Simulated scan of single mutants.
Amino acid sequence: MASTWAPNQDGPDHPHNAPEPSFARINDYWLDGSDHTEADVEIATRITMCAPHIPYLVRELRHLLGRMVRELHGLGIRQFLDLGSGIPNVQHIHQVVAELSADCRVVYVDSDPDVASRSQATLRDVPFARFISTDIRQPAEVLADPQLREILDLSEPVAVFLLGTLQEIADEDDPRQLVADYFARLSQGSYLALSHFGKGDQQLASGLDMFGRMFQQPPPVRMRDTDELRAILGDLSVVEPGIVRMPLWHPSDDQDMGQNAEHVPVHVALGVKNQ
């Protein structure tokens, strides 16, 4: 996810002294990473009290990312753009592609200054990856960034990742138009990897309500149904198996499937620009 709920106020000169929790560092904690603070752990614990399935979903989303990267690599994609990336550690895109071939290039984008500091440190010795600190709601600015242009060739296909990101984009910010604006600037054969909380997740809705009553204003999370996700994909063609529950998207083994896969409240899809 992006880190828009409670961004760090200290700025990039204080990467390990961020007093406010953020989605990115909370996710890092749930993924057994090392880029989180005591404040993040405290909020993560509170969230787990109210919605105990969230850490599981975060870990499953990271497994999905690996499956999608490998699938896209098999389709010939060698350029990857992760929007709202959070901190790119714990089997993120550049780590997955490093195991596949030496000709891949990766750009991560997130607007949180603390995430930027930590991410740039993480990628310091990764020559084929870059991190840019820009608001993903500004496609022209993101795609014109000199660091992105240094490493990605937009005349060739790019795989764009929006995993767990659009649920933080309000309807008034028009997620469908956001996707369209990105893909208007990308070549034919580019892909969109998308995941989103589905409507009807009563466990999540109840958890957010409980969090608000027990602790503080809950993080802003939008839930959208499959028709809304298909609309967000716009003119992109949906690749098989279509818009499905997260564990059902090309599971590599029974562990990916887990139990009650049809009830997991996250839908995912892979779309491709055919024209």
Rank of each mutant, 00 (worst) to 15 (best):
V126H: 05
V126S: 02
Q95E: 15
E99S: 12
P127E: 10
I87T: 05
L143A: 12
Q147M: 12
Q120L: 08
I77Q: 13
I132D: 07
D125F: 09
L81Q: 06
D125E: 14
H92M: 01
T134N: 09
D110I: 01
V90R: 14
A102F: 01
H92K: 06
V107C: 12
V96C: 01
V90W: 00
T122F: 08
G84V: 06
E99D: 14
F80K: 04
A140V: 09
S111W: 03
F131P: 06
L143I: 11
G86H: 04
F128M: 12
L100F: 05
V126W: 02
V109D: 00
P88F: 02
S133G: 12
S111E: 10
G84N: 03
A98D: 15
I93E: 01
Q91P: 00
R105T: 13
R124F: 08
D112M: 05
D82Q: 06
F131T: 07
A144C: 10
Q91D: 15
T134M: 13
F131R: 05
V97Y: 06
V115R: 02
A102W: 00
E99C: 04
Q79R: 11
R78Y: 06
P113N: 10
Q147V: 03
L100E: 05
V96H: 11
I77G: 09
A140L: 11
V109F: 02
V96A: 03
L81W: 01
A121V: 03
A121F: 01
S119N: 09
L83Q: 05
P139S: 13
Q79D: 10
D103S: 14
F80N: 09
V109Y: 00
V90M: 09
V90C: 12
A116T: 13
A129H: 09
I136Q: 11
C104W: 02
V96S: 04
A98G: 14
V107R: 04
E141N: 11
D82F: 01
P139A: 12
A98H: 07
S85W: 03
N89Q: 09
A121P: 03
L100K: 09
I77A: 12
A116I: 04
V90H: 12
R78D: 08
R105A: 13
D110R: 01
Q79V: 10
P146K: 12
Q95Y: 01
G84C: 07
S117Y: 08
V97W: 04
Q147W: 04
T134E: 15
D112C: 07
D135Q: 07
R78M: 08
F128L: 09
E99M: 04
S133E: 15
A140T: 14
D103T: 14
E141L: 11
V107P: 02
F80V: 08
A102T: 14
P88H: 08
V106R: 00
E141I: 11
